[in-house]
Every structure is written in C-alpha cells, then in structure tokens.
C-alpha cells in the first residue's frame, strides 16, 4: 500500500497500510514515543482501503480490514481516519490474538499490583483509567487487559486512550492539549478525541504485574457499591473476552484462577472525582 507504518503496542506488532497519507501521519505523530521499527515482522496487517475505486478520491470512504476483517464493517469518512486505524488494530486483537486471554477492560498499576476495570462502552472505564494514569498510577490500557495464561499476570496494551463526548473536556483539561489528538466529530459513537498515555506508561509497556482488584464501574448513577459473586464475575468476564472460546481449556483455567483470587466490586458513580475517591478507598481496603 502507498502509505504504511509499523507500530509496536505492548506485546503486539502491527503493520498498518493506508491508501491515503493522513491516517498514517496522524498515527506516526501520536504514537511518536512507541517503537516504530522500519523493518519488523508484524503480528497483524491492518488495511485502510477505499470502499470502491471512486471513493479513494471523491468523498473518500475507508473500509477497515486486514488479516482479520468483518465483511459488513461500516465505511468511515477519511476525516475519521485515525479512529479507523485504531479500530483496525482493535479488530486484529479481538479476532486474532491468542497469546493471552483478552479482557475488554481498562487497567492501571500501583505498587506493583494491577486494578482491572471492565464494563460496556460508556461505563467510564476508559476515562477512569486515563484520570488515574495522571494521579500516581501507571496507565496500562483502556481497551484490552491481557491475562497471561501461565503466570496469571495482567500485561499492558497501552494504545491511545479513546475518549468520548463529555469525557473529552474532563481529561483534556487535566493532561493538556499537547497530548491530545484531533477532535473527531460526529462518529458512530459521538465525538471522539484520543489521548497519548504518559511517557513512562509507554516505556514500561512490556512489564506486567499481578491483578489485585477487579471493578465493574458504572458512570451516571448515584454513588453505590456492591459485592459481586464469583459465578457472576466469571460469566461477565467470558462475555467481556473476545478469545475465551478460542483459547479452550487454558483460557478456562486462567479465568478461573483470576476469579478465585481477585476481589471484585461493582461501583456506581455520578462524577469522575467521586469515582476516583471510591477507587482509592477500595484500593486501600482491598483484601
């Protein structure tokens, strides 16, 4: 393809090709602190290609695909090219990664232990991880937490943080414009801006740690907290994993161990500040 970039995030290497220069230029800028090897063998190929010959030039429209793709993936406007590249990488991980159990969760680390937060899109897990990453925690990822099948450790996958709608101003105010990507207005998920993780989070992206607390956050509700039973945790995590079935018995064993050893709580919160206070308190009280 005309434009391309090879990028390493956590344990995975992506070769991203694009029919247009803009998405690659934006990736190269925002991922400047990440390894961008010129000549590396990639785990996955991502392609941003025109939906048709005409759509390369006139009202350019991106079809996101690669080694793994979805035939019915919705086309995206070239102005959302950065988001398309991010989605392309996520797609490869979700459908093709086999070396760890993939949990759709954010994660942060403190004192050598990991806090894992899982929930639907809009639950606040990305925003919380981004904010904690600015307040003494190490940001490990906002989309996928990688559970090591042998050691039970959580490994980082610290790609750009994808912030949506109201979360954008909250986080941009805290980290400053220099670490923010362009505003991608009116995407399928609303307005989106990407945030570059802190330099130390990127520098330590090869280092995992053992999980110590699992939270099910839920933004937009009165502050509340409840215990979650192991059977429910297990079921929710299988639903939050894209490769649980593909991994077979090793995936079952790793997830069982995680559920049995990591304490869990569901938390509701009305604002980010209250959530952070709840998280810090639970972290101190964890058993």
């Amino acid at each position: 393809m005309r434009q391309s970039l090879t990028l390493r995030i956590g344990p995975a290497t992506f070769r991203i090709g694009s029919a247009w220069p803009a998405p690659i230029a934006e990736l190269a800028r925002l991922y400047a602190a990440y390894p961008q090897p010129i000549d590396a063998i990639a785990d996955f190929t991502v392609r941003l290609q025109p939906t048709s010959l005409v759509r390369r030039f006139i009202r350019p429209s991106i079809f996101i695909t690669g080694d793994h793709g979805l035939a019915d993936a919705a086309p995206m406007s070239l102005s959302h090219g950065l988001l398309a590249a991010e989605m392309g990488m996520n797609l490869q991980m979700a459908l093709g990664w086999r070396r760890h159990l993939l949990l759709h969760a954010s994660s942060v680390e403190k004192d050598g232990r990991v806090l894992v937060m899982t929930g639907e899109s809009g639950s606040g897990k990305s925003t919380l991880a981004a904010l904690l990453g600015e307040r003494g925690w190490r940001f490990m990822g906002d989309e996928f937490a990688l559970l090591d099948l042998d050691s039970g450790a959580i490994l980082p996958f610290p790609r750009l943080v994808s912030l949506k709608n109201r979360a954008i101003d909250v986080v941009a105010g805290e980290v400053g414009e220099a670490r923010m990507g362009p505003l991608l207005a009116a995407t399928a998920k609303g307005d989106i801006r990407h945030m570059v993780p802190r330099r130390d989070a990127v520098a330590r992206m090869g280092k995992g740690a053992m999980p110590a607390l699992l939270l099910f956050p839920r933004f937009g509700h009165a502050a509340d907290m409840r215990a979650v039973r192991q059977a429910e945790i297990f079921m929710r995590l299988t639903q939050a994993s894209t490769n649980y079935v593909a991994l077979g018995e090793p995936g079952f064993a790793a997830l069982t161990r995680f559920v049995q050893h990591v304490p869990a709580r569901a938390i509701d919160f009305p604002t980010g500040e209250e959530a952070i206070a709840m998280v810090e308190r639970l972290w101190e009280e964890r058993t």
Partner: peptide
C-alpha cells in the same frame, strides 16, 4: 521482514 509479512 517484508517477505515474511507478505507471506503471512
């Protein structure tokens, strides 16, 4: 590397 990427 580019040969391997193409092959894979």
């Amino acid at each position: 590397a580019s040969g391997w990427n193409g092959l894979i």
